[in-house]
Design a binder for these strands. Structure first.
Lengths: 252, 252
DNA sequence: TTTAATGTATTACGTAACGTCAATGTCAAT
DNA sequence: ATTGACATTGACGTTACGTAATACATTAAA
């Protein structure tokens, strides 16, 4: 049984362009070329194409497929296992991305993450509103009233915990920072701890972390007066600048 | 504070090529060009770049990022939620792929899936070897001896169940097929059921399904004498050809 | 101050796996 | 002979840059 390129394309469910491309990269050559230069495929090629399409369906790259179909069974197993591991990794990465997005959506309801000012004020407002709350059963009940769905509940709980931790860590950082303001020693253990606390705090809200982004934020602390005021009020004069210096020093 | 392209690249952790590219596609323009034609960036651009890199870190395409940073907050929320859904879909797809690979690895330990002949013979051999087994505790014990790990156990159990189901379905199909051989009516309910059973049977071993691949396999049933003999023996003369005709009729 | 090293600019090819024209040739049927 | 369906080979477009190659600018060392 012989097939022209269109026939084969139809029974295999691919485009003729795909078959020409596979010919071009030597992945699937026609069994022969007829007198008019047409590609003619035999049943052997049909089978091979099915193989190729199976591997393609599990998202394998064509050069990997090429390696597979021109090798022995042992290597096929290796490839399959390897590919499975790649997919597992990829899935984990996507999970992280989803997590980051969900945190972003939750944390600032559409505000851009770089506009951390909003987050600050959100935190402060929440602290004022709930005045001395301990993040116990009360708040969970409050959230529960709003969101009945299981998924949402779990979600709110997560950010609730995050808020609690963020507040704690930030407090510790401010404490250490005011010590550094007195000693003025950026090489001190306290300074380094300030950096670490700030990084930890940041990771709660960003989910993702790079030293460069951290340093970028540090610059903003001095240039944006709202940031500057916030820290200077909390830890003392020149706190914002010192915090920036510390971050730059240890982040890069 | 102004930055040359290299400075900005370093504090942001990207390449200068990236910044030039972002300039080219109007994603991030320098605040000004100096007399020598150098790109000069200001603090506004630093902040914008941080935003861009955040969205990039969650795997957003640059044109989507462009839309986000040139729009209002409301649209940002839409984009984030949409993007989250895309990622969820992608993760589900990957789960399916992983499943398919694991079935492939398990089913024929490295044999190529298209070589279904092997699978046939494997099945037959297994049936002979275990002679009248009911896929009960005995076989589970046997598998348990070989693979102690939890993951593997769960895995073997899955294929064990699959084998059981596959055998049942195939038997039903053979039964229906022999009826069709007598009636010779491809429009009958039995013929259609044959197709459905065969498809179900196929999905166990392939995990993924396309009508074209199904039709391709059907062709093989006639051309490969081992297939032909298998079905003719089971359901009667001309069984392989009839099965092919049925599949082609309903699959495409 | 000359030289050397480094920084910046533009232009352009390469990537993966095809989709989509465009121009042209072949085959079967009317 | 013409038409329509199918075949061929280019060749550009896609995404987000990496990687030269070449030329001019700025800074540092000699």
């Amino acid at each position: 049984m012989e097939y022209t390129i269109n026939k084969l394309a139809k029974i295999a469910g691919v485009s003729t362009r795909t078959l020409r491309y596979y010919d071009e990269i030597d992945l699937l050559k026609p069994s022969r070329i007829n007198s008019s230069g047409y590609r003619i495929y035999g049943s052997k090629e049909v089978d091979l194409l099915q193989q190729i399409l199976f591997y393609r369906s599990i998202d394998m790259k064509l050069d990997e497929i090429y390696r597979i179909i021109t090798s022995k069974d042992f290597d096929i197993m290796d490839s399959l296992i390897q590919h499975r591991n790649n997919l597992l990794d990829k899935r984990d990465q996507i999970d992280v991305l989803i997590d980051t997005i969900e945190k972003t959506i939750a944390n600032n309801k559409g505000e851009i993450i770089m506009k951390d000012i909003e987050k600050f004020e959100g935190l402060k407002k929440q602290k004022l509103d709930e005045n001395e709350n301990k993040y116990g059963k009360e708040i969970r009940q409050k959230y529960g009233e709003k969101t009945i769905e299981e998924s949402n509940k779990k979600f709110m709980k997560l950010t609730e915990e995050d808020f609690s931790n963020m507040g704690k860590i930030e407090k510790e950082m401010i404490e250490l920072l005011s010590q550094v303001l007195i000693s003025e020693d950026l090489d001190s253990d306290e300074a380094k701890k300030v950096y670490e606390k700030h990084k930890a705090w940041l990771m709660f809200s960003w989910g993702t972390y790079t030293p460069q982004a951290h340093a970028g934020l540090a610059e903003m602390y001095v240039f944006d007066e709202r940031f500057a005021k916030y820290y200077n009020d909390k830890a003392g004069d020149k706190a914002a600048g010192t915090l920036r210096d510390i971050i730059i020093k240890y982040a890069i």
